[in-house]
């Protein structure tokens, strides 16, 4: 892992100035976007963007801040989604948000179990071990139809999104619902990274021996990182299932999804909350642009198979190019650009 320093407050500016862009963004997201956006923007771009951003934030706590690489994020998303679904289905009158929270708690518990190898393994050994979660969870959810209330192929359908009697089932509603959940959890995650716990994550990542000699319990910190991260990723999975897809099967949370979340974190920038949003934006919007571009340039001369393979090549190539050009991620790029503008 690279040694990243803690972010310093910008000198010469009052503390609130640094938070201004975020406040502005939130104001626009709550106050302007719901009135000007159309259904396509909400359903196909913003809602998946929000869910993936949240998953990115969750994984970033684990990988970026605590330095433990996980290739099993989609498994924890699946646990969150299926657990929320079952809590809401099986407990009469359970509020939706409580169901989401319980789904997150279940994901955290599962994350804790699959985080146990981190006590003895490091680096790629640990990363590969987290694949155990990926394959086991997907298998269990498909194999035992109890999880999907008796559906043979494991498909679940989202419960109605109603909070305190207000229905969020329209396109705008699903967007606002996701936005509220994501904003709250992101705030919590951001506070966490600035707290003693967050600093102990960074200490364990940068030098575990030094951390333990400072009195930080490395084992507890690692497990805590797995639990907190899995909680957030689990809620993100529930959002993905309930607000975005509406009907979801375990196959939707496959290894490719795990890699996608990891891409978001790497492309956005490790140990950066902002990076998770930038990375998710890139991952959601980029394929849309690419397929539009492909259609515009090539028309219908090629069949979808060719287009798909061409897209794969371009995406893969761009990932490599991106890693070469900006290894610290979009977040570093943005930081550099804004600093230049301020000076």
């Amino acid at each position: 892992m690279t040694d990243l320093t803690l972010s310093q407050p910008r000198q010469g500016l009052p503390a609130w100035a640094g938070r201004l862009p975020v406040a502005l963004l939130l104001a626009v997201a709550f106050g302007v976007v719901p009135f000007v956006g159309d259904q396509y923007l909400f359903d196909a771009i913003l809602v998946p963007f929000l869910a993936l951003s949240l998953a990115g934030v969750g994984l970033n706590l684990l990988t970026g801040y605590a330095g433990q690489v996980s290739l099993g994020s989609a498994a924890f998303m699946a646990v969150g989604a299926f657990a929320s679904y079952n809590f809401i289905l099986r407990i009469e009158g359970l509020p939706l948000l409580a169901g989401l929270a319980l789904g997150g708690v279940t994901a955290a518990a599962v994350g804790l179990v699959f985080g146990l190898p981190s006590l003895r393994l490091k680096g790629f050994y640990l990363a590969v071990s987290t694949l155990a979660a990926q394959f086991f969870v997907q298998w269990a959810l498909t194999k035992f139809d109890w999880f999907s209330n008796g559906n043979a192929s494991g498909v679940i359908t989202a419960p109605p999104l109603t909070v305190l009697g207000i229905s969020f089932d329209s396109s705008v509603g699903r967007y606002l619902f996701s936005l509220i959940v994501v904003a709250l959890l992101t705030l919590a995650a951001w506070r966490l990274t600035r707290s003693e716990i967050g600093r102990s994550f960074i200490a364990v990542r940068d030098r575990d021996v030094a951390a333990s000699s400072l009195g930080i319990s490395v084992l507890r910190v690692k497990l805590l990182a797995f639990a907190v991260s899995s909680f957030i990723v689990g809620v993100a999975g529930a959002l993905w299932a309930f607000a975005y897809l509406r009907t979801v099967e375990p196959a939707g949370f496959d290894l490719d999804r795990s890699f996608q979340i990891l891409f978001i974190v790497i492309i956005g920038g490790l140990a950066s909350i902002r990076g998770a949003f930038l990375g998710a934006g890139f991952i959601v919007i980029f394929p849309l642009i690419l397929s539009r571009l492909g259609q515009a340039l090539l028309g219908d001369t090629f069949d979808s198979g060719v287009l798909e393979n061409a897209q794969k090549i371009v995406v893969g190539g761009l990932i490599i190019a991106f890693l070469i050009a900006e290894p610290a991620g979009l977040s570093a790029l943005v930081a550099r650009l804004t600093r230049r503008n301020l000076n």
């Binding site: 090549i313 893969g316 890693l323």
Partner: peptide, 12 residues
């Protein structure tokens, strides 16, 4: 991550 990108390129 780069080898993941690489695997997309080669598969495609």
């Amino acid at each position: 991550m780069a080898t993941l990108g690489l695997s997309y390129v080669i598969e495609g």
